[in-house]
């Protein structure tokens, strides 16, 4: 145990090339997924919060339920879509980083959308009369709300990032955990642990936790500063 911990720190401090490659790919995949998911989920969440249409409650329930989407199921569905015989097989994306980005985007989109919907809806309760009095409704109202609570939405985006960087099932299935191509932190930890290479697994675990911690701390600082500046 102690040996494994020491080994892990040696790998981290020495800047092991393999370690860095795996961490870099993980960040690339998960951050890309967060960007794509946010671009879709934030407007979607705002629209559901502001608009009133038949079936709206069903969509709210669906979004909330999909927050608990099992990563392996998402992986399986994306696998079926992207496999040679699947409808999107001709793109040849299976077992590539783009496939992993697609899977993680699908996985975290409901999380970001559901949390954004809640934040925007709370703000809408406060702003609604004033905005309607000024003649602002529909899409402009939703955009105004999104912009006005942008720092609160960081929390929703971070929840998505946390989920994406921590999940192992979806990237394992659609990425295939190919050494040097689609191997990310979580899949490597799973593999190396079963192989018995504990120092590498442990060092990746430490890096993963430190990254998540650092991102959350940065977001907290930004949000706190914005809160004090804008009220």
């Amino acid at each position: 145990m102690l040996e494994a911990v020491c080994g892990a720190f040696v790998l981290i401090i020495s800047g092991d090339a393999k370690l860095i490659e795996i961490v870099a790919l993980s960040l690339k995949v998960s951050l890309s997924a967060v960007v794509f998911a946010s671009l879709l989920a934030l407007p979607l969440g705002a629209a559901v919060a502001v608009a009133r249409f038949p079936g709206r409650k069903a969509i709210v329930v669906l979004l909330n339920a999909l927050m608990g989407l099992p990563p392996v199921v998402v992986g399986l569905v994306v696998y079926l879509l992207l496999s040679r015989a699947g409808p999107l097989g001709s793109f040849g994306l299976l077992f590539t980083p783009p496939a992993m980005i697609v899977a993680q985007t699908i996985l975290i989109l409901p999380i970001i959308a559901a949390l954004a919907r809640q934040s925007v809806e709370d703000a809408w309760l406060e702003y609604q009369e004033q905005l309607r009095s000024l003649g602002v409704s529909g899409v402009p109202a939703a955009l105004t709300l999104l912009w006005d609570i942008r720092y609160s939405l960081l929390t929703a985006v971070l929840a998505g990032l946390g989920r994406a960087s921590a999940e192992v099932g979806a990237v394992m299935i659609v990425g295939g955990n190919i050494d040097g191509v689609t191997r990310v932190m979580t899949t490597t930890i799973a593999l190396e642990t079963s192989k018995g290479d504990l120092p590498l697994a442990l060092s990746l675990g430490i890096v993963l936790i430190l990254l998540v911690l650092a991102l959350n701390a940065a977001a907290y600082v930004v949000k706190d500063a914005a809160q004090r500046k804008y009220g």
Binding site: E126, Y127, E129, Q130, S133, T144, D148, I149, Y230, G231
Partner: peptide, 8 residues
């Protein structure tokens, strides 16, 4: 309104 609503 009674309670003003201001944007950030």
């Amino acid at each position: 309104f009674q309670r003003p609503v201001m944007l950030r």
